[in-house]
Design a protein around this nucleic acid. Structure first.
Length: 748
DNA sequence: GAATCTCTTGTTTTT
DNA sequence: CAAGAGATTC
């Protein structure tokens, strides 16, 4: 392959980064300046020009989406599969390492990854056992505390008791939590990173092996690394040894650091050049933006200029000014959604693609009014994030069955399903088992069996528990047979009666649950077919490195693989990705993406910036909100609409709200204010008040309606006016909501 | 032990 | 408004 293909599409700064000869390179890349392109071309350059084996390259990203995208683009450019290259998220890579070296990491072979939901359950359980009042000390706070410690690389032993006056119990909970996880073979997200770091520190031979293997480490979104991730990189890169041969290449943008709440520290960017000091180092700035129009970029620059403590970077573009930004002040969130949807329809009528349009918001709950409007007008859309597939209750139930089959020690899984579907095992019985397990210092499964044997449980309870044990054993037998993963999952869902349990209830919601369970079987099938690229990379690498003793990788049990996949990749799980859809997502999940037409909605003080961030100025949380706003603005290529509402329903109550301070940080010369009322929206009409409306008006009636049929006409009485209106109704999937009603016919 | 009702509370963001 | 906890009833 020709070098020109790698180099020609790049500008000067990008080229400088891609061809950098320094051992350590820091690329400060503004939004839309070709960050991913630089990473991809850098890897191509290493492989093609510097003859680096893909086997010696590790590339770290923050999301699975980004990892997939990078792999795809590298393969496209190199025209060859990237098989034995390590490309993945910090969590994904750490997971793989721990699987390969479970013994040295002091884990059990079939350890399970738990999500924050499971984690919270465990914390709650421990606190209950310790008799801590969860009114005074919310388990959430303790969970948060534990994760914060882990993100900073601190185990209980490293904490100073004296700094915890009145809160010593948190240390106890942390300690007990660690012991419980260790005993039951469970690993939470933060633990993956912490263990992987300790693996480096305590197992010199393993560290040495990987240090010999990797010659190039590349990191994307470097501004989002937390303490433990940074430490992990630092150790791996051999920075403690002045003679390391390993090259590090990190790309980041301090202005896009939006994960401070998860322990990320922007300072790492600043520290990089000091800490990674082996050999030479170079800093490259990418400041030319190829994405947005001049106006959009200037707005972004103006907003972010209000932050202090920046590394300093001004984006510019060759592009024309483009259109003005539009600000729409809506009556309420429904009017806001109507405006957005109207604009989208206009875009589509002019030949625009739906998939080029994104509606962005601060919090997941804000998707709802937009969804209603889109459904009502028949515009296909897709929501990212929110309640993800593997997070749904029924799916987690099914996964819990699999977990318990794979690992009888898994107390969390057992607790989840011992009475789901209900089989006559009540709180009382579970309490007895739990108590006994605690005294015997062993897992619930074992304890339950012993309690049946020694007749501690009442006959009725014992019979029910035995039934449960038999069920799991039966499923185990099925799992042992040589069935495909999908067949096993299908069996589990059927035999456990989970499906029947959810199917019995005949609401639409229950129906959706059954469909999700079916979809889980499909997901298992897909997983069977496609597998995990990172595992492939490691298996492949094993052949190449057969002389080495470092990696003791074996193909794992497919069920365990699937469970890890489910935990790490919460899964968007919506099959219709191919369809041309409007995209809805939070600002956080929009990072790294771009769209022609962007709507930033809910720009209200208290919502965005969020009130929690305004309240305490400590730690610059407001600045992080502003960076989030900057991320949002810079997602747009051509057109940007900013919307806010005068009143918004929060917790079922309609609250007055004021325009976000970020709006006033955009120079007036860049925006045009769209006046409310141009949207064929007549007025906000709470039920019980009078209203006047003409036929064909859209009227918002603050009333919940529990009909289920789309487009059905009903008669709504509005007291006080003496008028009755026959109206057209549109419904959402869940039944009772606030609705936008169209007046079809007025009856006095 | 399970189902139903009442009351409180509040996730901003995600691997 | 909705999910979860707690109380009450079957």
């Amino acid at each position: 392959m020709d070098i020109s293909q790698i180099i020609d599409p790049l500008n000067k700064a990008q080229r400088q980064a891609v061809c950098s000869e320094a051992q350590n390179t820091l690329v400060l890349a503004g939004a839309g300046s070709g960050k991913t392109r630089v990473l991809v071309h850098r890897i191509a350059w290493l492989v093609q020009v510097e003859n680096v084996s893909p086997y010696s390259i590790m590339a770290v990203t923050f999301t699975n989406k980004a990892a997939g995208e990078m792999r795809f683009r590298i393969e496209n450019l190199l025209k060859t599969p990237t098989r034995n290259m390590w490309v993945g998220t910090f969590h994904g890579l750490a997971h793989r390492l721990l699987r390969a070296h479970w013994k040295d990491a002091k884990l059990v072979e079939n350890f399970q990854i738990i999500d924050s939901d499971d984690q919270l359950r465990l914390v709650k359980r421990i606190m209950k056992e310790m008799g801590i009042d969860d009114k005074k000390h919310p388990p959430r706070e303790v969970q948060w505390f534990i994760n914060e410690c882990k993100d900073n690389g601190l185990r209980v032993a490293q904490l100073n008791v004296r700094e915890f006056h009145n809160r010593e119990f948190m240390l106890d909970v942390y300690l007990q939590y660690e012991e419980l996880c260790q005993r039951t073979g469970m690993v939470d997200f933060a633990e993956l990173l912490l263990r992987a770091h300790e693996l480096w520190l305590h197992q010199a031979h393993i560290l040495k092996h990987y240090q010999q293997r990797f010659s190039h480490i590349l990191v994307d979104e470097f501004q989002d690394t937390n303490t433990i991730q940074y430490a992990w990189l630092k150790v791996l890169s051999g920075n403690n040894l002045p003679t390391t041969h390993i090259n590090t290449f990190v790309v980041g943008d301090d202005d896009q650091s939006i994960y401070g709440w998860r322990g990320a520290k922007i300072e790492h960017i600043r520290e990089f050049t000091h800490d990674f000091k082996a050999g030479t180092s170079e800093t490259v700035r990418l400041e030319q933006n190829y994405r947005s129009t001049g106006n959009i970029l200037e707005a972004a620059n103006s907003v972010i200029a209000n932050n202090s403590e920046r590394l300093g970077k001004v984006l510019w573009t060759d592009d024309s000014e483009g259109e003005l930004l539009q600000i729409y002040k809506a009556f309420n969130e429904i009017d806001e959604a109507a405006y957005v949807c109207g604009q989208i329809e206009k875009w589509i009528d002019n030949g625009g693609k739906r998939s080029d349009v994104a509606i962005l918001y601060r919090s997941n709950a804000q998707s709802q009014p937009h969804e209603y409007e889109l459904v009502k007008r028949g515009v296909p859309y897709r929501v990212y994030g929110g309640l993800r597939f593997y997070d749904r209750a029924e799916i987690k139930d099914a996964l819990a069955y699999m977990r318990l089959i794979a690992n009888r020690q898994d107390d969390a899984a057992l607790e989840r399903i011992i009475n789901t579907p209900t089989r006559g095992i009540g709180q009382r019985t579970v309490d007895i088992i739990r108590q006994a397990a605690k005294e015997k210092q062993q897992n619930l499964w074992q304890t339950a069996q012993e309690l049946i044997a020694d007749k501690t449980l009442s006959a009725r309870a014992a019979a029910s528990v035995q039934k449960f044990i038999d069920l799991i054993e039966e499923l185990q037998v099925n799992a042992d047979e040589d069935l495909s993963l999908a067949e096993q999952v299908s069996h589990i869902v059927e035999i456990s009666l989970l499906k029947e349990f959810h199917g019995k209830e005949n609401s639409e919601r229950a129906q959706a649950k059954v469909e999700n369970l079916d979809e889980l079987v499909n997901a298992a099938k897909r997983f069977d077919d496609e597998g995990d690229p990172l595992l492939d990379a490691m298996l492949e690498a094993k052949d190449e490195a057969s002389s080495s003793s470092g990696e003791e990788l074996q193909a794992m049990n497919p069920m365990a693989e699937f469970l890890a996949h489910a935990a790490l990749e919460a899964g968007e799980g919506q099959a219709d990705e191919w369809q041309d859809c409007v995209q809805l997502m939070t600002l956080h999940s929009a990072k790294g993406l771009e769209f022609e037409l962007v709507f930033l909605s809910g720009l209200e003080q208290g919502l965005f910036p969020h009130k929690n961030a305004i309240q305490d100025y400590v730690g610059g949380r407001l600045e992080e909100e502003r960076r989030l706003c900057y991320v949002g603005i810079t997602r747009a290529r051509q057109q940007l609409h900013l919307t806010h509402a005068e009143s918004r329903t929060i917790y079922g109550r309609s609250e007055l709200s004021y325009a976000s301070q970020f709006l006033s940080e955009i120079p007036a010369s860049l925006v045009s204010q769209v006046r409310a009322g141009q949207n064929n929206f007549s007025r906000n009409t709470p039920s019980g008040s009078s209203f006047a409306a003409a036929e064909d008006d859209d009227v918002y009636i603050g009333q919940s309606v529990s009909h289920k049929k789309f487009g059905e006409g009903i008669v709504v009485d509005v007291e006080g006016s003496g008028a009755r209106a026959r109206v057209q109704v549109s419904f959402d999937n869940y039944g009772t909501r606030w609705l936008m009603l169209k007046v079809a016919n007025l009856v006095t």
